[in-house]
Nucleic acid binder design. Structure first.
Length: 434
RNA sequence: UCCUCGGUAGCUCAAUGGUAGAGCAUCCGGCUGUUAACCGGAGGGUUCCAGGUUCGAGUCCUGGCCGAGGAGCCA
């Protein structure tokens, strides 16, 4: 058998005989010449099977190919500008590994489909070129995040998925039966990150997080992935610089290495190219004034709604950072601003083009007495937080960090309408399958 | 949970209260350079479910189920 190659590398084998294996993407037929499009996950190539040029059985097998049948094809690679991809394969032999029966054909055709149908067939939908492109960008974004922190001396410290109590108390959690004891699926690695920061200085965790909110919007999943850095001795300004550098670095990497995928997704690249530090910084107070000037109902003390976030970000061509929200709308562990105790040293990063909040974080409350007070004010079970209070009993230290939601970042960078396409198997309100 | 919209062939959709339709997919035929190929033909229906109004309901009414978009909340 000639050399088995990945389709993405066919350009290196022009003039040579090679074997590829994959699935039939589509078959175009014109009389006695067939054009099977073969994909193998790495790329796609148009095959050519001409009657008279191949053995009759090869032609017949090719003619009977059905969409997504698995196959192995051998032939000579030839550069041809008529072919999608620039090269095509003059097939000389063809082995059908599994022919999809024509009375039960592949359900996803090259035509349009509705979102429910596609979601029900997510396991097959992933094979489409668009979904493959998104998977590629997602992979690159995750790799870029890891590289960013690894290159800066951060240590990855994994935080648990099962947790004994709420990290933030307010949000709804998924409850699980943990050997007759109540446990919850984590909604953030944040508190454990703080423990890890005291051990390794700079840490991050990256894993799935769970929110049992009955949110039904294009920005919400019940299971999503979050990357959360935490830095010992960092203050709010350090956190903001880290956030804008991370976001810029990730966007630059996607543009550098995944341009073909972004072009396939018809992403407007010029908008992404603006994403470079420094990002505009607005205090919450300034943001409220801007919003009121644009007709929002927002009052000082309230949190922003989705339309508020869009209104705010539309004034900029790069992400905008809003800092110092009122403490009352933020989590109990946020440090207050010493100059204005009613606001928290926190920051949200809002992506452009209406993609909303992609990062939330800030400086943590390092003072033992105040933290105890906050836990009581929020009616959190004190006992569950004793270990967390230990971090303030034994060498408390200023520190801060943030969480970045991977799916929202992927949606923004890919220019997608909905986060459901950013994760291989989305978990949403009313969708648990496949 | 609330608001709005939707559910008709495998898929995407059309059908003034009066015979259930098209494109794609599948099958058959034609075409040696197709690009979501094209051309001709065939098969394919519990109109989401249960009631109701009517001579007659895919269409109108009531209830339910399922889905989508948004709100609140959040990354």
């Amino acid at each position: 058998m000639p050399q088995l190659i990945e389709i993405r590398r066919v350009g290196e084998f022009a003039g040579q005989e090679v074997t590829v294996q994959g699935w039939l993407y589509n078959l175009r037929e014109s009389g006695k010449i067939l054009f099977p499009l073969i994909r193998d996950g790495s790329g796609i190539i148009q095959g050519v099977v001409a009657k008279g040029a191949v053995a009759p059985d090869v032609f017949e097998r090719a003619r009977e190919l059905t969409q997504e049948s698995s196959l192995r094809a051998t032939g000579k690679v030839r550069a041809d500008k008529r072919a999608p991809g620039g090269h095509e394969l003059d097939i000389t032999s063809l082995e059908v590994l599994h022919r999809v029966p024509s009375d039960a054909p592949y359900p996803i055709t090259p035509k349009e489909h509705g979102v429910e149908f596609l979601a029900d067939h997510r396991h097959l939908w992933l094979r489409s070129s668009r979904q493959r492109a998104i998977l590629g960008v997602r992979h690159e974004i995750i790799k870029a995040c890891r590289d960013f922190f690894d290159d800066r001396g951060f240590t990855l410290v994994d935080t648990p998925i099962f947790t004994p109590s709420a990290c933030e108390g307010t949000t709804t959690l998924f409850e699980v039966n943990y050997f007759e004891e109540k446990a919850y699926l984590t909604q953030s690695g944040q508190l454990y990150n703080e423990a890890a920061a005291a051990a390794v200085g700079k840490t991050y965790c990256f894993g799935p997080t769970f929110r049992a909110e009955k949110s039904k919007t294009r920005r919400h999943l019940t299971e999503f992935w979050m990357i959360e850095p935490e830095v010992a001795f960092a203050h709010l300004d350090d956190v903001m610089v880290l956030a804008e550098e991370l976001v810029s670095s990730v966007v630059a990497r996607a543009l550098e290495r995944r341009k073909p995928e972004l072009q396939l997704l018809e992403r407007n690249l010029s908008k992404l190219e603006q994403t470079k530090p420094p990002f505009p910084r607005l205090t919450y107070d300034e943001a409220v004034k801007i919003l009121q000037g644009k007709g929002s109902e927002i009052q000082w003390g309230g949190d922003f709604g989705a339309t508020d976030e869009t209104l705010l970000s539309e004034g900029y061509d790069k992400p905008v950072m809003v800092h110092r929200y009122p403490s009352q709308v933020k989590a109990f562990y946020m440090a207050p601003d010493a100059a204005r105790p009613e606001v928290a040293l926190c920051v949200d990063v809002l992506a452009p083009e209406g993609y909303g909040e992609i990062i939330g974080g800030g400086e943590r409350l390092a003072d033992y007495d105040l933290l105890v007070k906050r836990i009581e004010e929020n009616k959190l079970p004190r006992q569950a937080f004793e270990w967390y209070l230990d971090l303030r009993r034994y060498g408390t230290f200023p520190h801060g960090g943030f969480g970045m939601g991977i799916e929202r970042v992927v949606a923004w960078i890919c220019g997608l309408e909905h986060v459901r396409e950013t994760i291989p198997f989305p978990r949403m309100l009313y969708r648990l399958t496949p």
